[in-house]
């Protein structure tokens, strides 16, 4: 373990973390968030995509105390401190689920399904959760 200050001068690649799972039914969402935070130490060009049930991860009213789970919704608000600011949410996924982007805990860019496809196509590395 080392505590570098993150000042590296390697190659910068475009990384996309694809979030497609609801937050509490499985461990995927929490694991993705942890990997994203760790990846910030590598100074790469990181984007996050939220589509399908992944859009539920950002709902600010999430409150899992009653089912005995940690409320990691708050942690999305720390992404800005980690210089991760590109969060894309798919509009069609919101519409299908009756979710409003006003309900989100952090500012996001809402894009169409077609635009999401282009964002995916433009990456060097895609990690799916």
């Amino acid at each position: 373990m080392s505590e570098g200050d993150g000042e590296t001068t390697g190659v910068v690649k475009k990384f996309l973390f694809v979030n497609r799972k609801a937050p509490y039914g499985t461990i995927y969402a929490l694991e993705a968030l942890e990997v994203v935070l760790i990846s910030a130490a590598f100074d790469q060009d990181v984007s996050l995509a939220f589509l399908d049930d992944g859009v539920y991860q950002l709902v600010s009213a999430n409150n899992p105390a009653g089912i005995g789970m940690k409320n990691f919704s708050h942690t999305y608000r720390a992404l800005d401190d980690y210089d991760i600011t590109k969060l894309y949410v798919e509009r069609e996924s919101l519409t299908e689920r009756g979710v409003s982007e006003d309900a989100f805990i952090v500012p996001v860019t809402v894009v169409s399904r077609a635009e999401m496809g282009h964002i995916m196509a433009a990456q060097d590395v895609v990690l799916s959760f």
Binding site: Y24, A61, N62, N63, I67, M69, A103
Partner: peptide, 10 residues
Amino acid sequence: GPDLEARGIS
């Protein structure tokens, strides 16, 4: 109910 609340569904 607790599963609704966890998922922010009022």
